[in-house]
């Protein structure tokens, strides 16, 4: 039974990270109907920048949190302004390919600048082990779970009660009508990219403390996909829940069924979800069939 709870604990933690990445996908998809294939790479670039700043200023984990947020806001704004905004009105395939190009670019850039070997990430919130009943978690893992829950709640409030959140939903619903109602759709798009970059940036910081900081980190971006598909591509809270489910399933599958399952179980889930319930567990039902 202890084995089960150990698997559950690490599953919850990795699930929280997937959830943070998945939220990033969902925010951008919901606002702009584009899947940002560069999210994992943006997350990685952010973590590397945070690492460099951390090394030079000796900031601890909590000191790096605002740094990461500032860096991701800048990164999100620059990418949106330089690459995505000029593409508004182009076919979706072009915009998606733009993000794919960006992903390749950032991944190569990171390896060229920081090298291919994983880096030592010293800023850690501490090695305290928390016990939640039978489940034991490191502090960083607990922070990941807590952060995800907080961000989920935050987005629920944001979309429901704030001016920008309602504007974002309006723009997602119908761009033209939103424009006619006086909503600055371009600003809403930029906001979506900034928010997505920030959640991904925080995920990047957590990944570098819990696991390691290396070029393989961008794979977390890829592995956040199953979470967002399972939860619903346009459901922000649902994507977070999807993250937990995928994280736990991956760990249990690896622990009880066999080697090699961890990497692919999420992608098998994608295929199954698309066959049975293409809009995900919590997404809106209007996925168009051909």
């Amino acid at each position: 039974m202890n084995y089960f709870f150990a698997l559950l604990g690490s599953g919850l933690a990795v699930g929280a990270i997937y959830g943070l990445v998945a939220i990033g996908f969902a925010i951008i998809y919901r606002a702009t109907r584009v899947i940002n294939f560069a999210l994992g790479e943006m997350m990685m670039l952010n973590a590397y920048i945070a690492h460099t700043i951390g090394v030079h200023t000796a900031l601890g984990f909590w000191g790096l949190v605002p740094v990461v947020i500032v860096v991701s806001v800048l990164l999100g704004l620059v990418i949106e302004f330089v690459l995505i905004r000029p593409m508004i009105g182009e076919p979706t395939i072009s915009i998606v390919m733009m993000t794919v190009g960006l992903a390749v670019f950032i991944r190569s850039l990171v390896v060229l600048v920081w090298g291919a070997a994983p880096l030592e990430f010293s800023a850690s919130p501490g090695d305290i082990v928390l016990s939640l009943g039978p489940v034991r978690l490191y502090l960083a893992q607990a922070i990941a779970i807590g952060l995800l829950l907080a961000i989920m709640a935050g987005f629920a409030v944001f979309y429901r009660y704030t001016r920008s959140g309602i504007a974002m939903r309006a723009a997602a619903n119908d761009e033209t009508v939103a424009l006619l109602m006086g909503i600055d759709v371009r600003r809403i798009y930029a906001l979506a990219w900034v928010l997505a970059a920030s959640t991904a940036g925080l995920a990047g910081l957590l990944i570098s403390t819990i696991y390691e900081l290396g070029p393989d980190m961008s794979a977390f971006g890829l592995r956040g996909f199953p979470a967002t598909i399972l939860g619903g591509l346009d459901a922000v809270g649902g994507s977070a829940a999807g993250g937990f489910i995928i994280g736990i399933l991956e760990n249990l599958g690896e622990g009880y069924v066999g080697r090699g399952l961890k990497e692919i179980i999420g992608f098998v889930i994608i295929l199954v979800v698309l066959m049975i319930r293409p809009f995900g567990l919590f997404g809106t039902r209007n996925v168009e069939r051909v």
Binding site: I35, F267, L274
Partner: peptide, 23 residues
């Protein structure tokens, strides 16, 4: 599964497919 739907689903599933194949 993916071509019954519109949009970018094929991009995602094919990406998943590559990873399943290599593993």
């Amino acid at each position: 599964p993916s071509l019954r739907l519109k949009g970018l689903y094929l991009a995602i599933t094919t990406l998943a497919f590559t990873i399943i194949v290599t593993h």
